[in-house]
């Protein structure tokens, strides 16, 4: 089954829409789906033109396509456990929160907290991701725990904060403090970043660009060769963060 949701023009287009109900399993049951526009609850057809094509007997046979002005729609794909969501443009905050299976494709940019505390599945963002990509909620001790996040463009600050499992790949640059407090999983940064992996206690971070303002509390333990983008690169290997008795591994390309 394919469900196409195209946004309707809104009187106040900057007011965010909270749409955690937009997940494949909800469309299978055809329940009355509602979303919130500011402090007003709206039926789905008040916000979207809805087109449904074909049948489905399980959530993994459901594909949702979002198009139009989707950059202010938050929490799409939250707790998703099967199926596929394709977003033709940008998407708002918290896309793929806690998702455990399925696939989300974003053809534009993603706002902050993309794949927050994700457990499984795949998110692929073809544009840029904002701050806290694949991170955790405030005060949460574990961020993303499983699955794959791929960002083809750049990501903002605090990417993969508290990363505990899974694999996060940012093919472009990252902002400040990527992998801060990370304790497991793998973070791959294709471009440049600043102050990587502060306070890390575990996991592996690989930086194939330049790492600015490296923290003084990482111990150089030699070098290693790694493959990225079809090429082999010689990397300096660090262990840390010593300030936190950390046993994480940080690899930075030797330029």
């Amino acid at each position: 089954m394919r469900v196409i949701l195209r946004t309707k023009p809104r009187k106040k287009p900057f007011i965010p829409i909270e749409a955690e109900a937009i997940i494949p399993q909800n469309f299978l049951r055809k329940n009355d789906i509602t979303v919130y526009e500011g402090n007003k609850e709206r039926k789905l057809d008040e916000i979207f033109y809805i087109t449904t094509e074909g049948p489905a007997v399980s959530p993994d046979q459901v594909e949702i396509v979002l198009s139009g002005e989707t950059g202010r729609i938050k929490r799409v794909g939250e707790y998703m456990n099967a199926g596929r969501i394709v977003i033709e443009g940008d998407i708002g905050m918290h896309c793929g929160n806690f998702m455990s299976a399925g696939e989300i494709i974003i053809k534009g940019n993603a706002d902050a907290w993309l794949g927050r505390e994700m457990r499984g599945g795949i998110i692929r963002c073809e544009g840029n991701a904002s701050h806290y990509c694949a991170a955790g909620y405030r005060g949460e001790k574990r961020g993303m725990r499983g699955g794959i996040v791929q960002v083809m463009g750049n990501a903002g600050d605090f990417t993969a904060e508290y990363l505990s499992g899974g694999e996060v790949t940012i093919h472009g640059d990252c902002g400040d403090l990527p992998g801060v407090e990370m304790r497991g999983g793998t973070l791959i940064i294709g471009g440049n970043c600043r102050r990587p992996c502060g306070n890390m206690t575990g996991g592996i971070c690989m930086i194939f660009g330049k790492a600015d303002a490296m923290l003084p509390t990482f111990r150089n333990t030699g070098s290693e060769e790694k493959e990225y983008g079809g090429h082999h690169h010689r990397m300096t290997m660090y262990r840390g963060d010593i300030a936190n008795r950390g046993k994480g591994t940080l690899l930075v390309k030797i330029n």
């Binding site: 102050r195 509390t217 010593i242």
Partner: peptide
């Protein structure tokens, strides 16, 4: 913008890891 690095360095020193400080 250098506060984080200095605080990390002080934490490492107090932990007895003076040798790693640049």
């Amino acid at each position: 913008g250098g506060d984080y690095a200095v605080l990390s360095a002080l934490r490492a020193i107090v932990r007895g890891k003076r040798e790693i400080i640049p």
